[in-house]
């Protein structure tokens, strides 16, 4: 692995296996210290809950909301470790981007499609992902990665479905990428 480290020119990405081992250690430490693993979608769900709390508290506090357990006993939905974690993800991503000179405001897309098309696709894809992670009780990291790390059935099923569906639909959306 060191060979990549030694001659690491700026802007070159880290060796994926090295990154994987490091990420695995981070997951391990997360379980060791906090009882839970990584997570990303939970924080955004909590942001939604917070917004609902200010606009439509009656909905959030009723049984009709999937997030009503975020606010039982007068809890603040944002006072949760997942929210702190996502703040960390932003900071960590920014630091790495700064070190590797990748900080740049841009809309990345395949040369074959317009920026507008990519923007719409990103928005729709995000919405589908949001729905999916709500049903799946977590996203690629919280349900998938953590689940596989602890050998939970849910983790393996969710990962199999994410990649399975990805490959099934890849052909239909190939124009977006290649």
């Amino acid at each position: 692995m060191e060979d990549i480290k030694i001659q690491k020119p700026p802007k070159k990405y880290m060796n994926p296996y090295l990154a994987g081992v490091l990420l695995g250690i981070v997951i391990l430490l997360s379980f060791y210290f906090t009882r839970e693993g990584l997570g990303a979608s939970g924080a955004f769900k909590r942001v939604v809950a917070k917004v609902e709390q200010t606009i439509v508290p009656s909905h959030l506090e009723s049984e009709n909301s999937a997030f009503h357990h975020y606010v039982t006993d007068g809890k603040d939905p944002l006072k949760n470790r997942l929210v702190y974690m996502i703040v960390g993800v932003f900071i960590g991503g920014f630091i790495s981007g700064a070190i590797n000179r990748r900080l740049k405001l841009k809309l990345e897309h395949s040369p074959k499609i317009t920026s507008k098309k990519r923007a719409i696709a990103a928005l729709i894809g995000g919405a589908l992902f949001g729905l999916g992670s709500a049903f799946g009780r977590g996203c690629t990291s919280g349900a998938g990665l953590d689940g596989m790390a602890v050998l939970a059935t849910s983790g393996f099923v969710v990962v199999a479905m994410i990649f399975g569906a990805g490959y099934v639909f890849a052909w239909f959306f190939r124009k977006l990428w290649i």
């Binding site: 996203c139 990962v159 199999a160 479905m161």
Partner: peptide, 18 residues
């Protein structure tokens, strides 16, 4: 269902939340 929707969202949107 959740995993399937996430896969579809991934291929269209190109990211996952993290």
């Amino acid at each position: 269902l959740g995993g399937g929707l996430m896969g579809l969202g991934f291929i269209i949107g190109g990211f996952c939340p993290g």
